[in-house]
């Protein structure tokens, strides 16, 4: 039932963050079409290992599309040729025998390459640390049902909260902008009653940190939305702009330095 194929991979190899990288051509032979893309790389790595050569390093963990660790640009598309999935959910039936596949890491100044195809995404963590939370300590919370949230709002907040932080938005954006990622978190809290207290401080703090990390500026091409494996919408960015500009232009006094 399953067809087998031979592929030529052009893979970015780079020893570490200090060295210069280059493309290396590797053959992937006898690949079954029901393998996942990462399993194909496993097989390539297995062969490299048997030959005593350094296997290709790539980030991956859960392999079920939720941890956000896998991060490959495949033939010019983050997470490969299909929409709405992560690299680990991509299967080889999306490719054909004899095909050449170019595999690159996420490219952004704020995502330096660590080795081969793995990049450092701690800039995302620092943006979240700047304000992606509500200021509640453990223990003091009121009964959960004391906060009524209309289903429509809860659902919309969920749609924003479903971001997995993979960075495909940055990778897809021609400007390497992180606005879809940042706006998803700002939106989640802007929508929910629990997020109102620090609403305007949060927008300013997170945008400032995003800018400080060296991400590019959004030009509304929509590439991020198209490539997001979780379907985070551009309306989040509009909301972030509203929150941020509203805070800046009308509420600056709210910041305490």
């Amino acid at each position: 039932m399953s067809a087998h194929m031979n592929l030529t991979l052009k893979v970015w190899r780079q020893k570490n963050d200090k060295s210069k990288g280059q493309f290396v051509t590797v053959q992937a032979n006898d690949i079954a079409d029901d393998m996942s893309f990462l399993e194909m790389l496993d097989i390539v790595n297995d062969e490299l290992t048997r030959k005593g050569e350094d296997p290709i390093y790539f980030d991956h963990d859960c392999r079920e599309g939720i941890c956000g660790m896998c991060s490959l640009v495949i033939n010019g598309r983050p997470h490969g040729p299909k929409y709405g999935i992560t690299t680990c959910q991509l299967h080889m039936r999306s490719f054909h025998d004899g095909q050449t596949i170019v595999i690159e890491p996420w490219r952004a100044a704020a995502f330096p390459v660590l080795k081969d195809l793995a990049v450092d995404r701690t800039s995302f963590d620092r943006i979240q640390q700047a304000g992606g939370y509500t200021n509640v300590n453990t223990g003091g919370a009121q009964d959960a049902n004391n906060i009524l949230i209309p289903k429509r709002i809860a659902d919309e907040a969920f749609e924003s909260a479903t971001c997995i932080g993979c960075g495909a938005c940055v990778a897809a954006c021609k400007n390497a902008s992180a606005m879809l990622f940042v706006s998803a978190k700002i939106s989640q809290f802007a929508l929910l009653p629990q997020g109102q207290t620090e609403r305007y401080e949060r927008a300013q703090a997170m945008v400032d940190q995003m800018d400080a990390e060296g991400f590019g500026n959004c030009t509304n091409t929509g590439a991020c939305e198209a490539e997001c494996p979780k379907g985070i919408k551009l309306t989040n960015i509009a909301r972030m702009n509203r929150e941020y500009l509203g805070a800046k232009l009308f509420r600056e006094e709210d910041i305490h330095g």
């Binding site: 509640v136 959960a144 906060i147 209309p150 809860a154 929910l192």
Partner: peptide, 22 residues
């Protein structure tokens, strides 16, 4: 029971009914 209270306070978007309750 405290866990649910805590998580909701953090902004975890649990599923809700139309009336706004969990």
């Amino acid at each position: 029971t405290n866990i649910i209270d805590q998580c909701v306070a953090q902004g975890v978007p649990f599923a809700r009914e139309y009336g706004g309750l969990l």
